[in-house]
Design a protein around this nucleic acid. Structure first.
Lengths: 229, 229
DNA sequence: AAATCTAATTATGCATTCATAATTCAAATT
DNA sequence: AATTTGAATTATGAATGCATAATTAGATTT
């Protein structure tokens, strides 16, 4: 068995705590699912993944249990794991929750973020607008996420960030779909202008309301691509 | 034939699908942690638990991974699992999130619950008031939870309920502490009167606001018992 | 006596093995 | 030919074994 590869990536990463195998596997699988390398509904045979990653079944199974508790995969008794398929109902459930969480984060962020941190968000916003004007959707998407994430973290509530991220992971694929028509994309940009304005003026209730609406609109946009479901 | 007959008998509990060991173990451990049988900060040696439950380490370890992803235990590399200790900061983070989730649930419940379901909540409320008057705190606590849970489920958003329950599990112990002085307990009852009234009049925004405040007050009450932390 | 270093013990991470449920495929019956 | 039954295969659930990191105990040194 060629198991020596794990010691190679140890220098740069976190200095003291090197992640355990099941953690590493969970992260890798999470990425694969979120990025669509493992399509929804697909069966995830243990043997195959073990060979792919070159590990035994024990840590892989531990990782699958974690992903199941995150809702990314579904375990069927004696029948293995499947990538959880997103239904319209799932999206309709998750988006409002994320809206509520982001609203809370915005409210808190207005009170707690430093001026410098808000300026950093403004910088991200400007970059995002530029990538919109350039029609560069991947960069736009990345910056968009970075802004929302910055506000989440700016709330100073780590649990809020973690809860949000867990839900975001489930619907990540779907969120790629949003803004694929020009009108909605433009509207999203406008909403983000309001988001930034509310944050800069530290108007918590207003930012909360805008973020909630923003998520509601995102849902509506995404849902148009689920008509065939 | 026989198979059809079996698959149709779904009404009763879950006679066919016995839970897998790791699921069962996760549930048992969750209860033990939530109910305080495993005190916070305590080390959870695998060997000991294996003997307690009479199982091998594999399913137990799988269960611990799940509980770790739920935040109930903390895994330390090569150093085993500890029951996650609740800090004041944790409570201050979790309660506002639960407030936001319950506010959302209230808003949705006002729109979606049937009259019969609302009457059921009213019945729970009346029982709760009686147990308050009788000074029966355990029963009060149970009914209190049942009411909040009914509104959560009444939202029709299963993910919302699951998310809430996950957070609630973490702070369950702390919530026992609330209402241990008569003044706060009486105030809580009054808040519940408003909650019921808003629900019965289907005033979503108002119910949302009351629930949010209710959770905020709960936090304040609980925090008084964490001064020594 | 206190501190430190080393050896022994213990507990954990992972691999392997065993047992059992599920699936597949072929054969037999209608 | 289609359906069904049953054996063979495969995959998963769980247990055991092995290697290694942590912890503890003991001995040696200052």
């Amino acid at each position: 068995m060629l198991m020596d590869a794990n010691s190679t990536t140890e220098a740069m990463a976190s200095p003291i705590s090197r992640r355990s195998l099941h953690e590493e596997l969970a992260a890798r699988l999470r990425d694969m699912i979120v990025e669509g390398a493992l399509p929804a509904g697909r069966k995830v045979p243990e043997r195959e993944l073990c060979e792919t990653f070159g590990v035994s079944r024990t840590p892989l199974r531990e990782a699958l249990k974690v992903l199941a508790s995150e809702g990314l995969v579904t375990l069927n008794q004696n029948r293995g794991a499947c990538v959880t398929a997103l239904t319209r109902a799932d999206l309709e459930e998750v988006f409002p929750i994320m809206g509520a969480l982001e609203a809370l984060s915005g409210s808190l962020a207005c009170a707690r973020m430093s001026d410098a941190e808000i300026e950093a968000v403004a910088a991200l916003h400007d970059q995002m607008v530029r990538s919109f004007e350039a029609g560069d959707r991947p960069t736009y998407f990345k910056l968009n996420q970075a802004i929302h994430r910055a506000i989440l973290l700016g709330s100073g509530n780590a649990t809020l960030g973690a809860t949000h991220q867990m839900l975001a992971g489930r619907i990540h694929r779907a969120r790629y779909m949003a803004n694929d028509d020009a009108a909605r994309w433009r509207a999203a940009i406008e909403e983000h202008e309001h988001i930034l304005a509310a944050l800069q003026s530290r108007n918590g209730p207003r930012l909360a309301a805008i973020l909630s609406d923003h998520l509601r609109n995102k849902l509506a946009s995404v849902m148009r691509h689920f008509t065939e479901d």
